[in-house]
Amino acid sequence: MPARGDAGRDASVPSLAWLRRLGRRVLAFCSRLGRANLFILRVLAGMPSVIPRFHLVMAQIYHVGVLSLAIIVFSALNVGMVLGLQMYNTLVNFDAESALGPVVALSLVRELGPVVAALLFAGRAGSALTAEIGLMKATEQLSSMEMMAVDPVRRIVAPRLLAGVLAMPLLAIIFCAVGIGGGYFVGVGLLGVDEGAFWSQMQDQVDWSEDVVNGIIKSVVFGVVVTWIAVFEGYESEPTAEGVSRATTRSVVYASLAVLFLDFVLTALMFGAF
């Protein structure tokens, strides 16, 4: 926090004003990051009390997982079909259209499956989580819970975080499988790639632990980050209509940026040469 007493003095020195603004930004960012970390520690400390009340998590898996299924399946089918179509156009020039299977499968399992599913999850489920918790805060439902000695972090936030972390990898796996199905439909069904070559080359080049498991690990990390940002933004939102709307926007924007950045970091760690 900038020292209030210096404000008047600094304003008279305009060259320092931008420096102070920069400092304030950085400090605000750091304190927000710190609060997010303290918040997740509180949520994790509340996790053990969630396990006996698993029906709360179940209800949240329904909301963030099952209800996201339609958009995930639709997107996966289209992404897979476009991949099949575009890759075929290039590969056919080299007489290598039998490599369509591995190209579609590797790009889906390693990258597109976890990343696109996480982006859709942030837009579909993360925004809803933020808005719901933010509105609970704005309508003082959270404070009234505290009045009744019910910890809202344990009762509201922890089941939602756990549900998000559990649902995200399942959605990513479904995304990959449906996407490969879409690529198969276009490649083998419409464009006439040899079916045996499509699957056998895919099996030859896609490795279980190297590709599939790494993709699932990615989606678990994305699930943690997206849900964490969503519940934190909701919990920290200003308890006004405008505050909730801003928190929802921030939740989706930050979660998407975090997913894209972490994807690079994870890819470099998993597949990179350094």
Partner: peptide
Amino acid sequence: VGLFVLAAVAALFMLAMKVSN
């Protein structure tokens, strides 16, 4: 929710058996 988990398991099975080695 049960169906959702089942669908994911089926998808994982497909990734294991049909897609990877």
